[in-house]
């Protein structure tokens, strides 16, 4: 009975070495699905793109898939980067501003916070449809403003991808706002009063305290937004032009092509998209290491 009682009791001071070993084991278990998805998915995509895992035909190492898509590739990369960069930039400005309003408290802060939370839960597809209905030349906005369809700028399927960028910026600004507001409320807001007592105006507090301390959260959330926007296709597919195609739209079109040989080209586009994403992560990592908080 005594020994059973002892076994039932939790050890209040487990051996640190055993505890570390246990934590590593748990980490390995958690890493398995990540490794399967990332290494397996990415590996098979890379193999497909260089002809080593064809759906049809002989196995042959080649860069044909990359070469065959090259003519349209530059404009596609440019379009994707434009959409992702512009969406992320607008989302950062909107999201950070929204976060500061939420942190400032009061009724306005609560209302803005609630709107942000609701916005995050809206699917992108619904957001894209809504943006189309709002911004198209026959949409709600020109009708509300009393502007004729012929005089309305081409926001949907136009040369600047305005509707696409607007949808991404709207949705992702809410995401950035919630991430940054969480950081500000839990880690940064406490420094507002000391800064004010040292004579810092609201502007100085924003510049000297809030922005530097919120920078890591902003960098991380902005990187997530950039990579997501770069890799998602449905909003650009619904609201964008048919040419040039963003990378993700091109990849999906080629993947669904009746010709199974197009799968290798689709894989090549996917690999390029991943490479650009990894470059964005590297830039973000450098920015993080240079941020004042990290130093």
């Amino acid at each position: 009975m005594g020994s059973r009682g002892k076994r039932g009791m939790a050890n209040p001071n487990p051996d640190p070495v055993n505890r570390l070993r246990g934590a590593r084991l748990l980490l390995i278990v958690g890493m398995i699905p990540v490794v399967v998805v990332v290494v397996g998915g990415l590996g098979s995509t890379i193999l497909q793109s260089i002809g080593l895992m064809p759906l049809v035909g002989p196995v042959r190492l080649s860069v044909d898939a990359y070469v065959s898509t090259a003519p349209a590739l530059l404009s596609s990369i440019g379009t994707s980067l434009w959409i992702a960069a512009a969406s992320t930039a607008v989302a950062i400005v909107l999201g950070a501003t929204t976060a500061f309003v939420v942190v400032s408290g009061g009724r306005l802060g609560r209302i803005v916070g609630a709107i942000g939370a609701v916005t995050v839960s809206v699917p992108h597809l619904i957001g894209a449809a809504t943006m189309g209905l709002l911004l198209a030349d026959s949409g709600v906005l020109p009708r509300l403003l009393g502007i004729d369809a012929t005089a309305w700028p081409a926001l949907v399927a136009g040369p600047w991808w305005v509707a696409v960028i607007a949808e991404y910026a709207w949705k992702e600004s809410a995401f950035i706002a919630l991430v940054v507001a969480g950081t500000l409320l839990t880690r940064v807001a406490q420094f507002d009063e000391p800064a004010a007592m040292l004579g810092a105006s609201r502007g100085a507090r924003l510049r000297m305290v809030f922005l530097p301390l919120a920078a890591p959260a902003l960098i991380v959330s902005a990187t997530i937004v950039f990579i997501y926007t770069l890799g998602s296709y449905e909003v650009a597919w619904l609201l964008g032009r048919t040419y040039p195609e963003p990378l993700a739209v091109m990849a999906i079109r080629l993947f669904n092509d009746v010709s199974l040989s197009s799968r290798t080209e689709s894989a090549a586009i996917a690999v390029l998209t991943v490479a650009i994403s990894l470059a964005a992560v590297a830039v973000a990592a450098v920015a993080m290491r240079r941020s004042a908080v990290w130093r």
């Binding site: 406490q190 420094f191 000391p194 007592m197 040292l198």
Partner: peptide, 16 residues
């Protein structure tokens, strides 16, 4: 507060 020229040291140091 920022225009009062009053210094305040809190219970916690709250260094930036």
């Amino acid at each position: 507060p920022e225009k009062r020229n009053v210094g305040l040291v809190f219970q916690r140091p709250l260094l930036f």
